[in-house]
Design a binder for these strands. Structure first.
Length: 577
RNA sequence: GCCGGUUUAGUUUAAUGGUAAAAUAAGUCAUUCGUAACGAUUAGCUAUAAGUUCGAUUCUUAUAACCGGCACCA
């Protein structure tokens, strides 16, 4: 309760800060026209029409200074109530305001807030004066479409954030710094995990070290899915147009599909794996006793994403979905979802990720299928969450046209939220592909289909893990697990090599630093590369047949016998720590 | 795709309308060292294309890629 109150106070502060921003911009650019300036999750923004003027990053400082100047003047923020008619008169020169006013009810009393010469149409509430607005920062500028519609012209948006005290502001700025330091594009380059070539925008290359990470994630995935009763398939990257017409992708998503003509027949590279999975289902005849069928596929898909949308591994043009299609009877929905939720739960825990579930329900207009089936399915999803003991948030009308879904939003180590897992019910494709199974009474029935992913996209999940772990991966994922550092090549290299062989024999990923450098220098390298275990080999270790090691980020050195060390390392790998 | 910015050595960065510098990595030599940077030396760069200019890495335009947003994300 206390928190909600605090949050509301902060929202009012930020909202007033948005007005202060507008006032400052108005003073600096008298011709500026203002659209809306709402409070967002973190801070606020204001959308402004500046005519021919452009606000650049470096202008933000000037605006900030103007804001501070205005804030210090302790200008009263005065609420005024007027009728729609009066409002239209006051703002008759301002087409944006007229637009806003016309969207209000005829009889509604309109509130304005006045500070000095600046008046803005606004529901409020606001601070009493500008004097509390001291601890703010303008963060970035960008273009933003008027009313969020790409057919409209672009306004200029300025983002900012405001706090009650300098500590909170500093904390927030530090958080932004921290996020920047974790950037997977930066760390991915430094740690040689992946690259993106100019010759393939949006098509990432995995480097040897990144490939290890990827293989570990995939192996883990296969193992866990096998335990859950999944079978695995691999369906073709490219299939002919007729299939995409049956699936409906050709009509709806053609624009984003890569195509090619072969022998005068049009083909498309798959943007999703489901049609392939459906063909596999249709390849056999199933009894009601066979269901549920769980078919997993690490399927590489290609989607032509807009150039401006590309972002490291987060948004790419080819990625691998850790897909699975589950075909089941209607009476199996709930139990299967319960099972899936606990499976997903188990998977995320391994990475130390917590999560929230969101349930998206039937869209109001564009949907297919019977409402009764929708209601039943939505209830099954909700009941499954309850049975699994999980809270969930409902997003009404946010489901796909073909079925409701559960989305899993994971939270990383610095509190950022990413949507990864999803479970979607599909009432469309089984129909389009005429899927059947033979029921108890010998009649053909239509199975229900579930699409689900856990990582979402392996590429994107790797990006998230890089940022989550800040590049310091747990031992099982780490591209190099052990770095051996002989103190003196002349005297210690032989024993170091022997240790290396022994570790390789135990399938431990090991490197040996035989460069002609000082121990301090080699240790520094080992730490900057974030290698989990550094082994130091000197006279002592060689003579006693021991291993001395230091963990990443630790100052402590531990000495063990070789067998004890192997036991320790293996336990860590098994525990995925 | 749209708005704004950026692009200099493998990497991180500096500088200039008169022909480019440092650190680090790489090669060579020296050094043989107990937990985050030893020293010497060699080689290596102005994204692409056009324009302005006696002369362009610098100014202008276009293209591409990238970055921050917007739109999109089946």
């Amino acid at each position: 309760m206390e928190n909600i109150k605090e949050n509301e106070k902060l929202n009012v502060l930020n909202h007033s800060c948005a007005h202060l921003l507008a006032q400052a911009v108005k003073e600096l650019y008298p011709k500026a026209l203002f659209w809306v300036g709402p409070v967002i999750e973190e801070g606020f923004y204001y959308d402004i029409d500046l005519g021919d003027n452009v606000i650049k990053e470096e202008d933000l400082l000037t605006i900030e200074n103007k804001m501070l100047e205005l804030a210090k003047k302790d200008i009263n923020i005065i609420k005024e109530e007027i009728s729609k008619k009066e409002a239209l008169n006051i703002f008759k020169e301002d087409s944006y305001k007229i637009d806003l006013i016309n969207n209000l009810d005829e009889n509604e009393i309109i509130t304005c807030y006045r500070q000095g010469d600046f008046v803005d149409l606004c529901r409020g509430p606001h601070l009493k004066s500008t004097k509390e607005l001291r601890h703010f920062k303008l963060l970035k500028t960008s273009g933003a479409y008027f009313k969020g519609d790409s057919k409209n012209k672009m306004l200029q948006r300025i983002y900012g954030i405001c706090f009650f005290n300098s500590d909170d502001l500093e904390k927030h700025l530090n958080f932004l710094e921290e996020a920047k330091a974790r950037d997977h594009k930066k760390l991915g380059k430094e740690l040689e995990l992946f690259m993106i070539s100019e010759f393939g925008p949006g098509f990432p290359f995995f480097l040897p070290k990144g490939m290890i990470l990827r293989n570990e994630l995939e192996n883990f995935w296969y193992k866990e899915h096998t335990k859950e009763g999944y079978q695995f398939i691999k369906t073709p990257i490219m299939l002919n147009k007729d299939l995409w017409e049956i699936s409906g992708h050709w009509v709806n998503y053609r624009e984003n599909m890569y195509t090619s003509a072969i022998d005068e027949k049009e083909f498309a590279i798959k943007p999703m794996n489901c049609p392939g999975g459906l063909l596999v289902y249709k390849n056999s005849l199933y009894s009601y006793k066979d269901l549920p069928i769980r078919m997993g596929e690490l399927g590489q898909v290609h989607r032509h994403e807009a150039s401006g949308a590309l972002n490291g591994l987060f948004r790419v043009r080819t990625f691998t979905q850790d897909d699975a299609h589950i075909f089941l009877r209607e009476d199996q929905i709930e139990s299967e979802i319960v099972r899936l939720i606990s499976f997903i739960d188990r998977m995320y825990k391994v990475f130390g990720l917590t999560y929230n579930i969101e349930l998206s329900t039937r869209p109001l207009e564009k949907y297919i299928g019977e409402i009764s089936i929708w209601d039943k399915s939505e209830k099954a999803l909700a009941d499954a969450c309850k049975k699994a003991g999980k809270e969930y948030k409902i997003n009404p009308g946010d489901g796909a046209f073909y079925g409701p879904k559960l989305d899993f939003h994971i939270k990383d180590s610095i509190g950022r939220v990413w949507q990864c897992g999803t479970i979607q019910l599909d009432m469309n494709l089984p129909e389009r592909f005429d899927l059947t199974y033979i029921d108890k009474d010998g009649t053909k029935k239509r199975p229900i289909m579930l699409h689900r992913v856990i990582y979402g996209s392996i590429e994107r999940f790797i990006g998230i893990l890089i940022e989550h772990y800040k590049g310091a991966f747990p031992l099982w994922l780490s591209p190099v697990q052990v770095n051996i550092i002989p103190i003196n090549n002349k005297y210690h290299l032989e024993y170091a090599n022997k240790i290396k062989e022994l570790l390789m024999d135990k399938e431990i990923r090991v490197e040996l630093d035989d460069s002609e450098e000082k121990l301090g220098y080699k240790m520094r390298n080992s730490q900057t590369k974030k290698i989990p275990i550094s082994i130091i080999i000197g006279d002592k270790e060689r003579d006693n047949e021991e291993i001395s090691y230091r963990l990443f980020g630790s100052e402590e050195t531990v000495t063990l016998k070789f067998n004890e060390f192997i036991e320790y390392v293996n336990k860590k790998i098994v525990d995925k720590k």
